[in-house]
Amino acid sequence: MFQRSRRSGPETDPDADLLAAYAAGDLSAARTLARRLGPGALAQATRMLADRTEAEDVVQEAMLRLWRQAPGWRTGEAKVSTWLYRVVANLCTDRLRARRRKDVPLEAVAEPEDDRPGALADMQMRTRHAALSAALAELPERQAQAVALRHLEGLGNPEIAAIMDIGVEAVESLTARGKRALAALLAGRKEELGFADD
């Protein structure tokens, strides 16, 4: 299914220990692992899909796949979090491709929920999010994924490389080109998005 890249060095993965404990029958380890990895996976899926409900479905499917991998997981071949983010990214990509085949306009996609207080702040954040989502949707798929994982999820280039199954230099190139393209797409909207003084 998903090939795991070999890792070097003695670095340990506490998530792999939890996965092994779950495989041995410890259900509390599964709950702990879900609490550790679930929020990040959900944030990644929500940003990629711009639909919280659909993102929750993706994360649920990704976690089910992780539980199925648990008995045969080989510690040291991949970080559990990297594997999970990669599965989430692939599932999201599949859904985005299905959307494009249906020609669903971006405006028809539900906005993710925003818990920030204040109507003005809420409107500003929604406007910025919609602008960013629209701009990301105009980028080539791999550029959009690399930019989102780096600058929205805060992942490092080696982890993104593992998730996307490419080299670190390719990640750097995709991210740089994606940032330049986003800046060009959003350049005329600074004032509207509240960045006029930046």
Rank of each mutant, 00 (worst) to 15 (best):
A119Y: 03
R35W: 01
A89E: 14
M125V: 06
L106P: 01
Q145N: 06
G167I: 07
G40T: 09
R7K: 11
A110M: 06
L37I: 05
S173M: 06
P39Y: 08
L37S: 04
A181I: 01
A183C: 02
M1Q: 10
T127Q: 14
L155T: 01
A134V: 01
A70V: 04
V88H: 02
S133N: 12
A121C: 03
A70E: 05
N157Y: 14
E153C: 12
A196K: 13
R65F: 03
R6W: 10
V109D: 08
L139M: 06
P112A: 13
A131D: 05
G40F: 00
P39V: 08
K179N: 13
A131V: 02
N157I: 11
D198W: 12
R101P: 00
A196S: 14
A43S: 14
V147F: 08
Q3G: 13
E172K: 10
G154Y: 03
E54A: 15
P112F: 07
L66F: 04
Y85C: 04
R177D: 13
P71C: 09
A130T: 15
K102G: 07
L96H: 03
E192A: 13
V88E: 06
S133H: 15
L49M: 11
G194P: 09
D26K: 08
R101V: 02
R142D: 15
L66W: 08
R52P: 00
T82M: 01
L96N: 07
R35K: 11
R74Q: 15
G38P: 08
R65T: 06
L182R: 09
R36N: 15
A162W: 06
R52Q: 14
Q60K: 11
D57Y: 03
T46K: 04
L19I: 02
L66N: 11
A176G: 01
L152T: 11
T32A: 13
L132S: 03
E153H: 05
A29I: 05
